[in-house]
């Protein structure tokens, strides 16, 4: 009763599963998302907060904004350098970053996240005051 062939078969299956990311991506060059800034965003040089912060924490900031606007009806955001912004995804964020497909979606698709922001804020509608 020698089970070595079953053991080796099991081992091969395990290694195939474990190395899934290696063979799944085999021969696929996958550079990171190439996000495009609009002219307006380029001209502004900096977002409401430094770029590094925005890259990592923009979802947190948007959440804080939403909370401030919806719960406290506070629409003014003052950043670290004292500059004032209106807290609005549609009117502030998407004003500069009007190219959602080239900007927002690029990274969201790459990292497989599906924020529900755009369930309502579709096609960059301007909010009416």
């Amino acid at each position: 009763m020698n089970d070595r062939k079953y053991i080796i078969a099991g081992l091969v299956i395990f290694i195939a599963i474990f190395t899934f990311p290696f063979w799944y991506n085999l021969g696929k060059a996958s550079p990171g998302p190439d996000i495009k800034l609009t002219e307006k965003a380029k001209a502004a040089k900096q977002c409401v907060m430094p770029t590094g912060y925005m890259r990592a924490e923009h979802m947190h900031l948007l959440d804080i904004w939403r909370h401030a606007v919806v719960r406290n009806s506070d629409r003014t955001f003052v950043n670290a350098s004292g500059k004032e912004f209106t807290m609005s995804l549609s009117n502030t964020c998407l004003d500069c970053h009007s190219n959602k497909a080239e900007f927002c979606d690029k990274c969201h698709d790459y990292a497989s996240v599906r924020p529900y922001c755009f369930d309502c804020h579709i096609d960059n509608p301007k909010e009416k005051k």
């Binding site: 696929k28 060059a29 996958s30 550079p31 998302p33 990592a56 947190h60 990292a111 996240v113």
Partner: peptide
């Protein structure tokens, strides 16, 4: 303390695609 998840994925993808 969030990290730049896109950069993290770029690192991971580089590792698994042998680049």
């Amino acid at each position: 303390t969030k990290v730049d998840i896109v950069a993290a994925k770029e690192l991971a993808m580089g590792l698994v695609s042998f680049h």
